[in-house]
Nucleic acid binder design. Structure first.
Lengths: 74, 74
DNA sequence: GTGTGACTAAGAGTCCGTG
DNA sequence: GCACGGACTCTTAGTCACA
């Protein structure tokens, strides 16, 4: 799986587990609404500083967003 | 610590543990020699696709490059 | 073998909308 | 609340010559 797709899936899962909308999440991370939307769709290739912001906002290490997560799903 | 600095330290440590020169490492990752040099100096703000290449070349998860590593030094 | 400034094309990141 | 588009500025990707 490509890294952009991994990020996409991980950030959506973690965001939803916080009960945040994309807009709320974008605000928390100090990013733009539409950009977070793009990232969740795997349509962008962010820099590591952006990923760091996301990770900090979610309270997880950066690896939790970029590494493949072994979810319960088949 | 900033994420660029974490990347810088981690990639240098991991590269050296492989006994690779920057040149050799750049070749393995499919990147330019001077670009790897810049990254190790924390002079660049790479995208996640670049970091992914580095991680694959080193045979480690991306988190190993971006998360803070608890080295023995203290 | 590595650090550094400079350069161009491409893409990151922001902001305006719409359905 | 989210996907998606266009347009904009500024930075990154990737490379070179030189120290």
């Amino acid at each position: 799986m490509e890294i952009r797709e991994r990020l996409s899936l991980n950030m959506r899962r973690l965001r939803q587990s916080k009960g945040w909308s994309q807009e709320e999440f974008a605000h928390q991370a100090g990013l733009h609404r539409t950009y977070v939307s793009d990232l969740e769709r795997g349509a962008r290739n962010p820099t590591i500083t952006v990923v760091d912001k996301l990770a900090v906002a979610l309270g997880v290490p950066v690896g939790a967003l970029l590494d493949e997560q072994h979810s319960a799903a088949s």
